[in-house]
Amino acid sequence: MGVSGAADPDSFFTGMVVMTAPIDPGGLSPEQARALFRGGLRVPTAGWCAGWTQANLIAVPRDHAYDLLLFAQRNPKPCPVLDVTEPGETSASLFSGDLRTDLPGYVVYERGEPVAEVPDVTRHWCDDLVAFLIGCSFTFEDALREAGVPVRHIEQDRNVPMYRTNRRCRPAGSFRGPLVVSMRPVPAGLVADAVRVTSRYPSVHGAPVHVGDPVALGIDDLDRPDFGEPVDVRAGEVPVFWACGVTPQAAVMASRPSLAIGHLPGHMAVTDARDARYVVP
């Protein structure tokens, strides 16, 4: 599933080279993964490059960058900033690849409307774009699995389900919008473990923002995520919701800057930083 409201994503990917995902994507280095994405592989990145931090991408013109930085500072749970580029730069201190080509999918926005889902944004990139790398909850998924907590979207080979909520982020300058969350079903007896494990990763969303009834977040149907794909919630499991780095894209859609470029939700930037960098004792 693409960004809600976007045109049929297949229409944007015609002419791509069809590639097959590797048998063991978790064993790849960031450089190897980025080479595959640059070559045309389009796939969600949960479970890829074990031990290496993944990040959300959002890039806006320089005139909007301060407002976006302030929005992130005021909403650190969904928008933990890991890195920010200078205007026009196409790499970052945490990402030695090319931000225009080395992710498996991008969304281009014009005045808040998603106008294209593409594998390469070179022709859309402007000299005044400032790129933000925002922490991603994929970073703590290996730790969850090591603790015995299932990660259903990896088990089912699906994109993580993400939902707009009825919670409003604190506005900043021209930016406003709803909190977006990702959801993972957790056996009731392991919820405390999931909270404990993820609370040690405050720079990549940290502990959940909600456990239990999705209606409390304004989510009517878990089988109809706004981004990503639905996953099975089995008997005895509780839906657990984490703040999500797609929140800046929801803010772009609500705030309508002239141009913005984001990652295709679930199709992340694989950085050169280690997950261990973001763990607190």
Rank of each mutant, 00 (worst) to 15 (best):
N75T: 02
A273P: 14
D275E: 15
G177I: 00
S258P: 04
V180Y: 03
C244I: 09
R152D: 10
V181Y: 02
V238E: 02
V121R: 00
P87M: 11
D83H: 13
R42Q: 14
V115L: 05
E113F: 03
S174K: 10
S11C: 04
A216R: 15
D157C: 12
G39P: 08
D193F: 07
D275F: 05
N159K: 04
S174D: 09
G135A: 09
R196C: 06
V204G: 03
I261D: 00
R170T: 15
D275H: 11
E141R: 12
R234N: 10
S11R: 08
Y201Q: 09
V115A: 04
S255N: 04
M19R: 15
E86W: 15
H263C: 02
F241N: 13
R274H: 15
A260M: 03
S91M: 02
G206F: 06
P161K: 03
M16H: 13
V246R: 03
Q73P: 06
P171R: 12
A50E: 12
T122C: 04
F175N: 07
W48P: 06
M253V: 12
V160R: 05
L217Y: 08
P80Q: 08
V180N: 00
D213L: 12
L190G: 01
K77N: 12
R100S: 00
R145D: 15
P76S: 11
T198A: 04
L103T: 09
V280M: 09
L41V: 06
G262W: 03
A188Y: 07
W242T: 03
P171C: 07
N56S: 04
A243Q: 07
V18G: 05
P30Q: 01
W48C: 05
V252N: 04
L82Q: 05
N159I: 05
A194N: 06
V108W: 09
S137W: 13
C126S: 15
P171G: 07
S29M: 11
T53H: 01
A251P: 10
D63K: 05
V18Y: 09
A250V: 10
R274L: 14
I261G: 02
Y278S: 01
R100N: 01
D232T: 15
S174F: 10
F138V: 14
V115G: 03
D128I: 12
A216M: 15
G189I: 00
P208H: 13
P25H: 01
V81F: 01
E89F: 13
A21L: 04
V84Y: 10
E237W: 06
M162Y: 09
P30N: 05
E155Q: 14
L103E: 01
E117L: 01
V186K: 00
Q156I: 09
S137T: 15
A269P: 11
P161L: 06
R111V: 03
H210V: 09
V43C: 09
T247C: 06
T53K: 04
S4V: 01
R234Q: 14
G266K: 07
L103C: 14
A269G: 03
V211N: 06
T271E: 14
D8K: 15
A250D: 11
E113T: 11
L94Q: 11
C169T: 08
E86F: 12
Y106Q: 10
C169V: 12
G51V: 03
A72M: 11
P225A: 06
P202V: 12
P161F: 02
M19H: 13
D24L: 03
E86T: 08
L68D: 08
R152H: 08
A33G: 14
V246K: 02
